[in-house]
Every structure is written in structure tokens, then in C-alpha cells.
Nucleic acid binder design. Sequence first.
DNA 1: GTGGTCTAGACCACG
DNA 2: GTGGTCTAGACCACT
Lengths: 126, 126, 126, 126
Amino acid sequence: MILLDYKSSKPIYEQIIEQIKLNVMKQYLKPGDAIPSVRKLALELEITPGTVAKAYQELERQQIIETIRGKGTFIAGEIELKPDEKKVLEIKKRLQTELMELKMMGYSKNMVVDLVVGIYEEMCVC
Amino acid sequence: MILLDYKSSKPIYEQIIEQIKLNVMKQYLKPGDAIPSVRKLALELEITPGTVAKAYQELERQQIIETIRGKGTFIAGEIELKPDEKKVLEIKKRLQTELMELKMMGYSKNMVVDLVVGIYEEMCVC
Amino acid sequence: MILLDYKSSKPIYEQIIEQIKLNVMKQYLKPGDAIPSVRKLALELEITPGTVAKAYQELERQQIIETIRGKGTFIAGEIELKPDEKKVLEIKKRLQTELMELKMMGYSKNMVVDLVVGIYEEMCVC
Amino acid sequence: MILLDYKSSKPIYEQIIEQIKLNVMKQYLKPGDAIPSVRKLALELEITPGTVAKAYQELERQQIIETIRGKGTFIAGEIELKPDEKKVLEIKKRLQTELMELKMMGYSKNMVVDLVVGIYEEMCVC
DNA sequence: GTGGTCTAGACCACG
DNA sequence: GTGGTCTAGACCACT
């Protein structure tokens, strides 16, 4: 369910966050579903519990998951869509970096759009 | 010409690389144009020369610039477009991360496409 | 009568203690009134009896309730007001934390006082 | 400058967060001021660097401080006051808990207001 | 059983 | 020098 790239420079805890978000978006994980306990996932991924805990805490901060004391961790009931101007700006900057790389490799506007649409559609059930 | 965000988590040297590439793409910098020496740029940006040197080294490796001993540093004659499968894959992964964030903020496919087209067009003279 | 927030970081048993105290203060519960047995309340709140028992023990220690073997549990006859210097100090510390958060959100002194008065008045029959 | 209560049940990293916020509010720390490095503060407080790092990361998330790569950590330039409905509700709940305790010790409305005003005024320069 | 916190180290990239 | 990440444990409170 969660695949890590241990060689990646992207921190493991961020990879976990992303994978779970992706699973939620693809509706493999639905509101109320339990996700593995910190220790269980740590064993499964062969990492230390602290790293999983860090990921879970960030996900809880983002209200993607909810922890119930002594019970476990669950996908949050309602995930609110709140557009955040500041965050969009950051994302735009990062997108620019990537689009620039593509453009330098000869990607035209249409090719870029096709690529983006492909990624977007693959990401959801819509 | 080069604007740095010292608070950003993106390394300064990467920001320099990116800004110079952007200038090339917007044709503010054309093949053969001189770019400031390491020391001069370091002074201008109020950073240490080592950081600028690191950026220039990487740009030279990517054949965006050329250093001619005793003369200075220049934008490379011809920048070749070489689509690199591996690199595209990496970019796709990073794009997915960003698109996911947008989707979680309520961005529809069309909104994402608009955003991307906007960034792409702003990036070039086309 | 007792509402729990299972997602809250505040322990369930503490929530029970607080809710019962609140009921006493609002005079929904008066000296001599019976309160549900541990098992009954546990069933009602869908939690384990141990958690309810823990709450009742603490309430008994604070002389808010009294357990009469074979009869049940009741609101204590007279609840004494004993100002406890040490406890007030602890409360002040915690209040400071909360007031600081409010201040950082732009709450002026008057706004804070209004808020506090509102909470206080809502809490009692006065 | 930062005093910890090692016996407190309040996590050390939260105590650090609070103390720094307090210092900012009292204007002992002003925008642009450097705060001790993770290692330095850890040595000073005789705790491990990880705990300090956790506090600093949370403060950065709240935009109270800013870290500049390889340089250090500084008080943020502008601290924005953004009232957050949800957060206020949480604070109200916690305030209710504390006010209830006070009321049970015989504190009248006026006494509570005096206490709160005292804490608020002590907290700032205003 | 659960998650939260903390220790005492380590390694890394950055400037 | 700086902060960020991670390990491999430990202890705690809660259910």
C-alpha cells in the first residue's frame, strides 16, 4: 500500500505523507478507515516508529487523519478544501521550476498540458 | 536580475541556477552574453563566493554556460534539447506532488491546466 | 447529558470529570442526586468501564461525588470552596498560555475580558 | 532567558515554544533578532537537540521565527494576527475548564476578571 | 494494544 | 558553523 524509495533525497516521512494522501485521493482509503498503527507501519516499512509518527502528526495537523487516544489512527471524516493564497504561490514557484526543465528538454506547451492532464487524471477516480 | 529568497528552503545555489536558466529562456541572456564573475555576483547578492561557484559549476556541467580562463563566463553557444527519459520521470513524480496539493485545495483539472499554461507562457517569449 | 469528543487530545476520563462538574455547577445535578453506575455510563458513552471508573475515582477524591456501597453513586452533600494557592498558580500558568494565544490572534484586553465573562456567565445559573 | 520546568507534564518542546512566544510578546525578542542555535540551546537547557529542533520547527510553522540555511534562526519580520474561528473555539473550551476550577474555589466573576486582566497586562508592554 | 515524548547519538546538505 | 533527518531504543498516559 505504501511504497518507499529509500534512495530518494525526499525524506521518508514526507513520502509517507504523500502516499497516504494519494491513497485518500484515489479513494483506496475512505473517511473512517483505519490506517496502520505507528509501530505496525514502522515494522512493515523497516523504519523506526519515530519517522512514522512524524508523518502521522503532520497528516493530523493537515486534518487528513484523526487519532483517537489508545484506539488508533483513522482517515478524517471531512477533508475541507481551503484554497490558501500563500500556498498556491509556493506551488506556482515549484511548478515553474519543473516546467522550465521540461521546456529545456523541448516540451511544447501542448506536450506539457498533456503531461499534466495525464498525471491529474491518473491521480483520481473522477 | 537575480532575486534570491534567503528564507526559502530551496538552497541559494539552486535558486541562482534557476534564475539564470530563466533569464536564458526569456532571452534576457543570449548565447555569448557575459555573466558576472563569481566574486562580483557574490558581492551583489551578499552571499559567499563558494555558493555562486557551486551554481556556476552546475550550470557549466549542464552546458548552459562556458567559462573561458582569463576572459570570464558566458552563456553557451547552443543549448541542446535532449529529452531524458529518466529525468522526465523524476519531474513527473514532483509534478504529481504539486498537483496533489492543488487538488486537495479544490483545483479542478481545468483550473490546473489554466495555471500551468499561465506559468508556461509567462516563462517564455513565445 | 454528557458529551464526549473522542477525537480530542483531552483524555476521555477527564472529559467525564469536567462534564459532571459542569452539570453540578449549572445545578442540573444537585446534592444527593444519583448519577449512573459505572457500567451504565460506559454503555451509554460506548467506552470501557475502566475509563468511567477512573473518572468517578477522581471525582470522589475531589469530594464531588460519593459512592455508597450497594446503593450507587451520588452528588456529594456539600461541596466546599477551598481556595488552594498552589492550584491557583497552576491555573494562572495555563490561563497565561491561552491568553497568549488569544493575544497573538489580535485579541485586545477588552475582547479577552468579554470572552471570559461570557464563558463564566454561561457556566452558571447566577 | 528560557526557563523550563522539567517536572511539568507539559512537554519540554511546548514549554520552549511558549517561552519564546512570551519573549516576543514582551518585546525582549524583536523581529530580526537571532535566537540560539539548536545545539546551543540544547546544551544550555541540558536537553537533546532533537527536542529543541521540534520546538523551532513548530515555531517556524507558525511563522514566529524564520530559519536561514546555514546561518541560523531569527524572529520573523512580521507576525500576522489572523483570528482563526476553530482555534478560538478550542481555546474557549480550555478556558471554560480553568474558569470552572476557579469558580469551584469560590472565585466570583469580578475576581476572575481581575485575575485575567492581571495576567494579560503582565504579558505585554502595552 | 495505542500514540506522544524524549534521549543520545549519527549523517547530511548548506553557507 | 547551521538546521534537517533518522536510528534504536526508552518511558509515559490512555483505552
